[in-house]
Write a protein that binds this DNA or RNA. Sequence first.
DNA 1: GCTAAATAAATGTATTTACATATATTACAA
DNA 2: TTGTAATATATGTAAATACATTTATTTAGC
Lengths: 150, 150
Amino acid sequence: MSLEQEIKQTKPFKSNYEKTLVNIMFTNNWIHFKQNKYLKKFDISIQQYNVLRILNGQKDQPITINEIIDRMLDKMSNASRLVDKLFAKGYVSRDQKVGNRRACDVKITPKGKSFLEEVTKSINGIEKDMNKLNDAEFEELNSLLDKLRN
Amino acid sequence: MSLEQEIKQTKPFKSNYEKTLVNIMFTNNWIHFKQNKYLKKFDISIQQYNVLRILNGQKDQPITINEIIDRMLDKMSNASRLVDKLFAKGYVSRDQKVGNRRACDVKITPKGKSFLEEVTKSINGIEKDMNKLNDAEFEELNSLLDKLRN
DNA sequence: GCTAAATAAATGTATTTACATATATTACAA
DNA sequence: TTGTAATATATGTAAATACATTTATTTAGC
């Protein structure tokens, strides 16, 4: 189904540029909705899941709150409180950084690691909803998005 | 700058598919941030702006709350309360629908129309941040996104 | 050393989101 | 008709978001 049909738009978009804006927002919501469906049963939000993935990507090296913000997709949300939530669940550790008492070292715990593995296994289910493009097309889509943002 | 650099990701993505997911979310946040910058000075949220655009697209035909939801990019948010906000600002009218007392007719007001014109004029400023693709590339991007969601 | 500026994180808060539930009205079936 | 289901919207709410502000610590200039 075309985007126009999907949002029941009667008149066509003024330009391909304008359609792209709406298309990206709509597709993002489409992904968000699907991801959320999988994450809900693990009682974790998408933001929390993403922070956990960032920490997991650091292997055994701790990173600070500011470094987490740098790596987050959505810079605006509150990394400090997201870490709080993950800490309360036992998925991350948080210690004062040696040499800089303002900063803190955040690290994924073994419990967090195995939790993340489980969640990731489940969330890969959306992959079957997204096998409509082949690898070359995914690559092309990526390079167009990269170019768009420059 | 590549997406990997942008989010300071050290290890490469496992697949182009996985990168696409992150890329769409990141690009959406990038757009959201830019739009928000323009909308803030008009004291209106992106969701409210989008509802106003939907109503404007209906010309002089009123539509119901459910029809607005159908046309919204983000189906989950509360159309009823968004209309409330716009009504309080005098940008829309809301009357009981004749023939169905459950439903209501929502329509953009002249005040809403001229407000929307002003906002749209301003928000088109982001276009200059997004002229990195030519028309054919926007079209290609659109068809890839459409195909992705199928 | 002392003070001002800069930095890192935490906290406050108004608004928005993501639902679940309630209320009102209409449609349908026995 | 008389209850039952369906529909349209409104309301309640816990949590998350989008900031602004505060606190604590470090750095730099004098």
